[in-house]
Design a protein around this nucleic acid. Structure first.
Lengths: 192, 192, 192, 192
DNA sequence: CATGAATGAGCCTTCATTCAT
DNA sequence: GATGAATGAAGGCTCATTCAT
């Protein structure tokens, strides 16, 4: 049952951090939402910082592997880029709390939380550059564009769209439409 | 010289907020850096939140007007987009503290700081969409792309690049090169 | 082997209390050193206070009986006093943890640990006064000195010497020499 | 008025530490007794540890200088020893809280409070050895007794007597009588 | 008896904000 | 307006103790 409790705390932390922000979040409330006592959180996580970092590191694992699976389902680099874009925004829709954290807190934290450099986040970004490099090698994407820049540019674009979506109370924004447009711009932008 | 004091506090806050983050920043240290007493900050700003919001609202004014001027120097919508990209990254290089705030803190704040919706930030973003709409009207840019999405996508891309630049201790990243590539991708992506 | 477990906890507590002090000592660490579970300590001792008091009460039993035996080996009151002094400092050398507790924690405790008045400690002190009274009755020691004061004065002297010894990292202090000097001072001080 | 506030906190801390012991003492209560807010204590002292150490270091200053004056009033080494004994026990009577701290907390602290070695306490002890050495040089006290041991032995004796006095609720103990007896024993013990 | 995960009361410390000077 | 000492609410974290297994 230990696993279950750790998981509960993690999930609760995602929710509270997303709702209140890391600094406004209270350990006590995370514990309450998780259905455990305050002290219990400290049996599973060193401290508040560790809790946040653990979220990034652990919640990213299935996200990365799911994304990898989605990408591999596609044949061409073009379809793979499409897949990344679609699946990323899908994620934003289905796991808004987690998306929120990635968007907002990761930036805060990467600088202020003791020595956290966001290894899993880099891994996620590298999924983009890998697909892009593959496309370049197959002569589909222009070779004058650096994959390192491309991954940031695409992620940044997606991130801004999803931040906007997440922060808008009324979810009237059509993320599918956004996905289309982003894919449209970027593929036109990088195709030979 | 009240104006001068207010300005000093504002500048100091930009530095401290950028260096420590909004939540870690201490009012006392901002006051010290500004060369005033702690209480003096409260003569010019309601509270810590207001100080941050004032930064956004007031520091954005010259930024927006400068950017507008730069854009207007250019003739075509294409050149104007170029100008925006170049000038934005120039800003990141010259006012890294302010850029840092826009990147990181604005996101935090828009949600957690009492009712701030970032009007000046929206104004800044709208510079992009205005240029884009102009290009569409002149038949230069594709009409199937929504200006509202485009502005976010471009800003997000620039923002991610600059976040990366700001956070990397060793400023080995060539922002001019990045500007080139971004312009390259986006113009190819949206030109008819 | 319940006795064995209780004894192990007691011994572990002596070590940890001596090393960290009563308030800094953690029940969990005592349990770990004793090789039992945390909860087990509560099967043998009411609480942390009781554990400390039990140490005093139970560890003092052999100490008192040994001391009594040593004293009784001697014939004269003078030799008995000598024996007490020597044996006490011997104890400090051989059981530094226990000595530490007597010196430091007992004082704390007598006031702050619920209603503990240190009966065994009084018993130990009374070994001194008994010897002294015996010497007075035999006309060896001056009669104008109150045994109750004498016992405190001698114990205090020994205690200060041993505190000093215990706290000095480098055990360069020669306790035998100290014993000589103390005996010298006190016997000269009280002999008729 | 700052000095006054610092002094108030110091005095309050002496009382509370003496009454409850260092570890049981609550900063909030010290503040309340001092008539200031909790946070105010931290304007004058780094933390709880620093507060305790400051007490030792600062409260000992007048104690040492007063004791020095008392000693210097006496002519002979014998009278000076008498003076030390009397004045020390006088102090115990007049400043029982401070005495309590010296007796109980100093021992605890010297080991557990970060790197505090009790310089002022050593200074106090050295008053004894100085007098004793003077007596040895004048040929009044035996030369086979080490001043370093003597100072501990005398202090330990006094301390035990005063601990006993402090802890006994009903102050029926006559400290003057005790002073007489101690002086009696020690002078007889060390005179040539 | 034994375990050790879980509990939650308690406390030190911080820092935005106030206000007497 | 300006000061900065004072305030005190708030929260992260600890650890003695409990109790379901």
């Amino acid at each position: 049952m230990a696993r279950g409790k750790r998981e509960k705390i993690l999930k609760a932390a995602v929710k509270i951090f997303a709702r209140d922000g890391f600094f406004n979040a209270k350990m006590e409330e995370i514990a309450r939402l998780a259905g455990v006592a305050t002290g219990t959180t400290y049996l599973y996580f060193e401290n508040k910082d560790d809790l946040l970092i653990s979220i990034f590191e652990e919640e990213m694992i299935p996200i990365i592997s799911n994304m990898t699976r989605e990408i591999n389902k596609a044949e061409t680099a073009v379809d793979k880029l499409h897949a990344f874009i679609n699946h990323h925004l899908e994620l934003v829709k289905n796991k808004p709390d987690m998306a929120q954290l990635l968007e907002v807190e990761l930036r805060q934290s990467s600088k202020f939380i003791h020595g956290y450099s966001g290894s899993k986040f880099r891994e996620y970004l590298n999924l983009i550059s890998s697909v892009f490099e593959e496309g370049q090698q197959r002569g589909i994407f222009r070779s004058d564009i650096q994959p390192t820049i491309f991954k940031q540019v695409l992620f940044g674009a997606l991130d801004q769209i999803s931040t906007n979506y997440t922060l808008s109370r009324s979810k009237k924004i059509d993320l599918n439409e956004s996905a289309e447009q982003i894919a449209n711009i970027f593929l036109n932008g990088v195709l030979r």
